[in-house]
Design a protein around this nucleic acid. Sequence first.
DNA 1: CTACTTTTCAATGTATTTATTGAATAGATA
DNA 2: TATCTATTCAATAAATACATTGAAAAGTAG
Lengths: 218, 218
Amino acid sequence: MASNVFKDQVYTELARVTTAISNPKRMEIIDVLSQKAYSVEELSKEVSMSVASTSQHLQVLKSAKMVVTSRNGNFVIYSISDDAVLKLVSSVKEFGFRKIAEIERLIQDFKTGQEGLETLTLDELRVRSKKSNILLIDVRPEEEYEAGHITDALSVPLDQLKKRMKEFPKSKTIVAYCRGPLCVMAGDAVSILKRNQFKALRMEEGYVEWKLKQYDLN
Amino acid sequence: MASNVFKDQVYTELARVTTAISNPKRMEIIDVLSQKAYSVEELSKEVSMSVASTSQHLQVLKSAKMVVTSRNGNFVIYSISDDAVLKLVSSVKEFGFRKIAEIERLIQDFKTGQEGLETLTLDELRVRSKKSNILLIDVRPEEEYEAGHITDALSVPLDQLKKRMKEFPKSKTIVAYCRGPLCVMAGDAVSILKRNQFKALRMEEGYVEWKLKQYDLN
DNA sequence: CTACTTTTCAATGTATTTATTGAATAGATA
DNA sequence: TATCTATTCAATAAATACATTGAAAAGTAG
């Protein structure tokens, strides 16, 4: 049957896409690259792996057309090829978080470990920022902020927070965000702020989630 | 670092989701189950594999919570757990079809093999069915039609088409659909109809694509 | 309770995937 | 062109995934 061969080929191609994201490290790499482009060496530090292994993972992602390369001097810079990749990963997460109880439990354990921080969603933020006085801060490294950030957010990298929080008005509620639900920086920021008598909340969603939401609004 | 352990665990869980769909046969199984529920034995025929292998694939999908089981007499009936699975798979396909040139080429080769049939999308169907006289037929097996079909479609399983087409008015344009872009039945139906002097078009999308679209409209 | 059917499990051999190390390459800079 | 550096390739060893066969189990029906 000729059409059977065709069918098998198509499913094999589709599986090539899912195989590319079937590895935990590669998922993490995509998440990191979703924030900003990286060289192989930088990235290997970010995901705690040898340069050679990182390179190999990147090649898998590249052959699945999920990342693209450019060159900057000696460095090869990897970046996400297309917003369709963000959507794909986002729908994997949506399914994963909803369905896999184990993930829910892990996140729960982790959150309660973080002093029971109060959290906020993007939608809640939009509503509250109209009513009350809110200061939205982006605690990711400055390069990631520069590569793209939520409108009206102030860049306050985590390692500068202690110095810079003196500028913050105590009258405002401070909302911190970072890379998204799996990222710990915003939680750390809120802890620090609270210890210093600020009203502070963490927003679980990050820049990527916000960006994807913008499409839906248009 | 405690948060590193957490992160690795979460990515491992997420990868469990993508690993479940990282195999061509499992993708095919999900597609088949998207049309209607099947027993292991039926399914193994549908995807041309041994019963034991099919069972093992189903267990992988079950442990990823993508399918659920029920019992009917001696048979264990597998079905898709949730429409979130359809959405996930649909976004994989969306990315796959858009990005992977090889798939595009395969589909192109396949289509041109099918006598250059004229095709129609769901959106075009909606527009045209208001203006002109259209008869929409569902050429999948009757059980799949009964498990769910596009509103106003007439069930005409492919193997009954030759007898039943006598009822069709020659004044109407006949639009045939089946399981979706990878399915060959609608193409076969159109070929037969054209050979018998009907005006006939194939719609590439199938019932699942239509169903997902209904959500977006609400 | 027994017989029967469908599904699952276990064992096997093969193939793929993965992280690491160390060597090779490609490309930029001088 | 020669040198230097980041990246990629190759080889390895361990682990995991895969399809098949045949046996075991689970559950229905009589």
